[in-house]
């Protein structure tokens, strides 16, 4: 056998576990779901599906709940992404300054991001609760007026606070990026008389743009798919409808499917967002050659 044929066989047999599972449990269900989104499937009529064309997709754009939830999702994303990227980078910049005990601080900042979402929601719920809540207890102890943290006016703020608590998870990748900046660049800048603030603005930030860019894109993708935190923050069960301002796009889709059995319409809603995310991903990967650095050349 030729060396090349041998290698091809080796390659395909080694990736076969992924490939077979991907076809059966990834691609097939995905296309099946896409097909269902063009039908009238509502949970009981799997044997008598009717082709509805683009009707579900059309409905999504005229459904006022869907449009409202999309607006709220964009609102949450608009605050969540820049703030969490800034927190991750800011903390990493602090830690990159030859700090004693850096691993302790790094651990503390990173810790909240590994707390299981469910445990995190339970913890924050007790803090925000208006009935026996910790935060209001503290506010009233120090003589400040109590706030209805999970009520209409503050629910989204509370959600953002809870999400941003996990923003320290970005510290690790930012630190890795900062460590990759050659030290002699800083020395050269110092000799030229640049202050630390100037060095940060004119040297560090431009060199960190790949990492920042990556974090922004991944942040947007993640943010658009938030649904469990708002549901659990206000409700006590997974099918509960969150308070109106926290009624996000994925929550809407989840509700359509699991609370109302509108599988076909729910799938259409998900596919619309998926296509939007896919368009974003294409941007990431076509530009990746400008920001991914390999130590050796690819074969």
């Amino acid at each position: 056998m030729k060396e090349k044929t041998k290698r091809t066989i080796a390659f395909y047999s080694m990736i076969s576990p992924w490939f077979v599972v991907f076809i059966i449990f990834g691609l097939y269900p995905m296309l099946y779901g896409l097909y269902l989104s063009f039908t009238n499937y509502y949970g009981f009529n799997i044997k008598h599906l009717k082709w509805m064309g683009l009707q579900n997709y059309h409905k999504a754009f005229t459904d006022s709940d869907a449009m409202y939830s999309l607006g709220r999702t964009l609102y949450v994303t608009a605050f969540n992404v820049p703030l969490s990227v800034a927190i991750g980078l800011g903390l990493a910049l602090l830690l990159n300054r030859q700090v004693r005990g850096v691993s302790v601080y790094r651990t503390i900042f990173y810790l909240p991001s590994i707390v299981p979402a469910l445990a995190s929601v339970i913890m924050w719920k007790v803090i925000f609760s208006s009935n026996n809540g910790i935060l209001n207890g503290i506010l009233s102890t120090v003589g400040l007026p109590e706030v209805n943290w999970l009520g209409y006016d503050y629910a989204t703020t509370s959600l953002l606070i809870m999400l941003l608590w996990g923003a320290g998870g970005g510290v690790l990748i930012n630190l890795a990026g900062l460590k990759g900046i050659p030290r002699d660049l800083y020395e050269a800048a110092s000799i030229d008389g640049a202050t630390p603030i100037k060095r940060t603005i004119y040297l560090t930030l431009p060199l960190m743009t790949p990492v920042i860019f990556f974090n922004v894109i991944m942040g947007i993708i993640g943010s658009l798919q938030i649904y469990m935190q708002p549901i659990l923050l206000n409700g006590t069960e997974l099918l509960a409808r969150p308070i109106q301002p926290n009624y996000l796009y994925f929550v809407h889709a989840f509700q359509q499917i699991f609370a109302f059995q509108r599988f076909a319409y729910g799938m259409a809603l998900l596919w619309i967002l998926f296509l939007a995310i896919l368009a974003l991903s294409v941007v990431v990967f076509t530009t990746s050659k400008y920001w991914v650095h390999y130590e050796t050349d690819q074969e």
Partner: peptide
């Protein structure tokens, strides 16, 4: 597939 929201394959 990393960009794929899990729920889009989970429901089918």
């Amino acid at each position: 597939t990393m960009m794929l929201p899990g729920i889009i394959t989970q429901i089918p």
